[in-house]
Write a protein that binds this DNA or RNA. Sequence first.
DNA 1: AGAGGTGGTG
DNA 2: CATGCACCACCTCT
Length: 609
Amino acid sequence: MPYVLKFDPNEPKYEFITDTARAVEALKALISEKAVGVDVETTHTDPYLGALLTVQIGTETISYVFDARILHLGEIHGFSELLTNKKVIKILHNAKFDYKWIKHFTGVAMENIYDTMLAEAVLTAGLGSGYFSLLSLAQAYAGIDMNKDIRKSFAGQQHAHFTEEQLKYGAKDTLVLFPIFEQQLQKLKKENVLNVAKLEFATTSVVAEMEYRGIYVDRKKWHEILDIIRVDRDKAMAEFYEAIKPYFPTAQFNLFGGTAPAINLNSQQQLMDLFNNKLKLNIPSTGVEILEEQKHPIAQILLNYRQSEKLLSAFGESFLELVNPKTNRVHPEFNQMGAATGRFSCNKPNLQQIPAGRTASFRTCFNPKPGYKMVVSDYSSMEMRILADLSGDEKFIKAIKDGLDLHSYTAALMFGLEYTDDFKKKYPDKRQAAKAINFGLMYGMGAGSLARQIDVTPEDAEQYMEKYFQSYPSVRKWLDKQAKDAIVHGYSMTPAGRKRWYKLPEKSDPEYRKKISRIQRQAKNHPIQGTNADAIKYALVFVQERFKSGQYDGGITHTVHDEIVCEVREDQAEEFSHVLSNDMIRAGEIFIKKVPLASEPFVGDVWEH
DNA sequence: AGAGGTGGTG
DNA sequence: CATGCACCACCTCT
């Protein structure tokens, strides 16, 4: 049945509230509602740098526009009571944005959130971009055109009077949430993903708190690391230009007597010309895997240059510019539906791609605030445990239960060797090969790429894989079933019920097989990666409760797929580290019942372990 | 502005 | 028949 609008999009009913007495009355009326729409207007996107102008809270028929410049909302009776009330659903679009502003300016931490943006992301995972504007949802669910230009007009409105146009716009933003909410709810139930949506909603306030808190970055130390890398980079660059001199006999001299670089080291086009036309190496690309095979010294020099240049460009000044001048911390944006699998993505800066090796120790620059410790915990080999559990493979499960080193154990089975505690030392190559298989098959890898990766013939790789699947027969069965089901149903699913949909190609599509194969690989991986995501989201909710309840002093600073990083008051850190690990395990056990889980805690002064 | 190449993370 | 999942940032080139 079509949804009937309860308001007039051209004349939205609203009340502009500037006095406390009227605010109290409005809030009193609102608290008996089943659900309210909430939105804010601000002068900026960053609560640390801007001002809160209005908070709109409304029903499906009327929106109350509270003037946050005049009213002390945090102290007004009924405001906190309404926004933290667990019986009244707060409907928002991209709730973490409003959450941060309301928290910052009123001290109120909203509860019981329904987020129309996240709901849409859950409903279209794998199909869309993961980002949905209120504009597009208003159009799709209510046929309403929203004027996006008015939002920009709030930037300079800190003291001036709002126009009626602006107030109407603000009001419409809460009114339009209802038709979206009502219809999404039906869809979420119909697709059986309401529980996943609820997990996302519970997670969103945790994400808001995490972004709001941010994490301290030691800029001085960061610069010291950059200086060292820059020396290496310049050295490699000099070596490179020296080495290519013979190939550029006409190398021009510029006006200042120095040589003008004959080649832009960052131009793959010019490099290809050098390697193929001058050096006659005939390489298909200049990627690491190709260059590593080349004997020519220039290839090695380029690799050295690239290694340093990569770090300087991706983690240089541009990174430090993202440190917030007010807080001296970075406040990355975490997109909780950033990946089609349910994983987080992260940007500005992307803390999920800070180098982890020991060569570039950027992670040591992330420190707790004074009097606090970094407390970190990682799930150990989580995706392998998930695969063991979901496939129900007895041998696989037993190996985990017995606490064996899984890569070594797989190697022992595949190569017919005896498993011992020092297997890793005795057969490092065999273990490495098994590791490649263990990971690769979770991505649906074929024998061809396995052969390339562990440097054996395709025939050998084929044999290894066959041996692997003979060792773990249920794993093969399970993977095959995921691939098949995805094509039959058009989606794959985690045990938590998180779905990822696929756009199936037409039979006539010239790339039909290629596309089907790709979907099959994605469908094999999705329940594994997605279950990890489900677990970490539950864990984040559990852990946040530890801080919110006042049990521990501190907060979550960030999360990297299978890792949660917190800063916790020094005297509580050690104890908290075990609480953190246990919460992560407890969260995982909601979905993983047959296999024991582990999460390793660390306490220190840096984000690194 | 967008695509493609490269490379950082789990 | 093609052949490893999920991201984001920076660079060059068009």
